[in-house]
C-alpha cells in the first residue's frame, strides 16, 4: 500500500539552481548576501520537507542530515528511506558537487526559520514532545537540540486544515481517534494523512485552546471531538 507521501515521494524533488552553486554552501560574510542565502536556504528546507513530508529534521553530528519521518506510528516507512540511499542527508549535502553545509550554518538556517515560526527545536528534556522520539529510527544518543520541527505548515495551519475536513465531512460533534485522523481509511488523500502524531497533538492543542475541540482518553488511544 502506498501512502500519499509515498506517492509524492516517487517523483524526485527538484532542487533550485542555487543548490548546485558551490558558494551556496559557504556562509557568506556580506550581510546582504548572507541574508539572501538564509532566505534561499530556508525556502529550500521548507520546500524539501514539504515534498518529502518531513516534519522533524534531524541535524546530525557531521552536518549530514537525515530526514525523520513521522514513523513512530508507521514503522513501515523506515524501509522506504533505506530504499532510497541518496535521500538521507541529501538536503544539506550535495554529493554531486561535493559540498555540504556545516552544522553551524545549518543551525543558522534553522534559527532563521525559527524567527519566522517555521521551525522549533525538540528538546529531549521536554517530555511532552519527545515521547515518541525513542522509538524513531536511529537517533544518536546525544540528540538533544538536534531534532527540529520543520513547520512547512504551522500547527495552527494544520488545525485549520483538519477543522475544515471535519466540517466538510460533517463529523462535527463526533469523536475521532487520533489514529483514525492520521492513518484511517477515511482521511486517505487528505493532507494530514500520515501527519506526525506529536505535530497532530500540537495542532489539536491550538484548537482546544480556542475552545473549539476537546481531547479525551489515554496516551495511546486519544480521541478528539470538534464542536
Amino acid at each position: 500500500m502506498l501512502s500519499s507521501a509515498q506517492q509524492q515521494h516517487q517523483q524526485p524533488f527538484s532542487f533550485p539552481r542555487e543548490y548546485f552553486f558551490p558558494p551556496f554552501f559557504t556562509r557568506q560574510t556580506n550581510l546582504t548576501t548572507h541574508h539572501a542565502q538564509l532566505v534561499k536556504w530556508s525556502a529550500l528546507v521548507l520546500a524539501y520537507c514539504r515534498h518529502h513530508r518531513i516534519f522533524k529534521l534531524f541535524l546530525s553530528y557531521s552536518g549530514a542530515v537525515a530526514p525523520i519521518y513521522s514513523s513512530s506510528t508507521t514503522p513501515s516507512k523506515t524501509p522506504t528511506d533505506q530504499q532510497d540511499p541518496s535521500e538521507p542527508g541529501e538536503l544539506f549535502n550535495n554529493r554531486k558537487i561535493n559540498r555540504r553545509l556545516s552544522l553551524a550554518d545549518i543551525r543558522e538556517v534553522i534559527d532563521f526559520l525559527r524567527k519566522d515560526g517555521r521551525a522549533e527545536y525538540i528538546y529531549k528534556s521536554n517530555g511532552t514532545t519527545t515521547t515518541n522520539m525513542d522509538t524513531t529510527a536511529a537517533p544518536p544518543p546525544d540528540g538533544g537540540g538536534d531534532v527540529v520541527w520543520i513547520f512547512w505548515r504551522t500547527p495552527e495551519e494544520w488545525a485549520a486544515v483538519i477543522e475544515a475536513w471535519v466540517e466538510e465531512t460533517g463529523q462535527r460533534g463526533s469523536v475521532l481517534t487520533l489514529y483514525e485522523l492520521t492513518q484511517g481509511e477515511a482521511t486517505r488523500g487528505t493532507e494530514f494523512h500520515g501527519l506526525d502524531s506529536d505535530l497532530l497533538q500540537k495542532a489539536l492543542a491550538t484548537v482546544v485552546k480556542r475552545g473549539k475541540a476537546q481531547i479525551f482518553g489515554q496516551e495511546d488511544s486519544q480521541g478528539v471531538k470538534f464542536f
Binding site: 539552481r17 542555487e18 552553486f21 558551490p22 558558494p23 551556496f24 557568506q28 550581510l31 546582504t32 548576501t33 541574508h35 539572501a36 542565502q37 532566505v39 534561499k40
Partner: peptide, 13 residues
C-alpha cells in the same frame, strides 16, 4: 564567485 545567491532577496534585507 559571481553572486548567484543574492538574486533580489537581499534587497528586502
Amino acid at each position: 564567485w559571481e553572486n548567484f545567491i543574492d538574486t533580489g532577496e537581499g534587497k528586502r534585507y
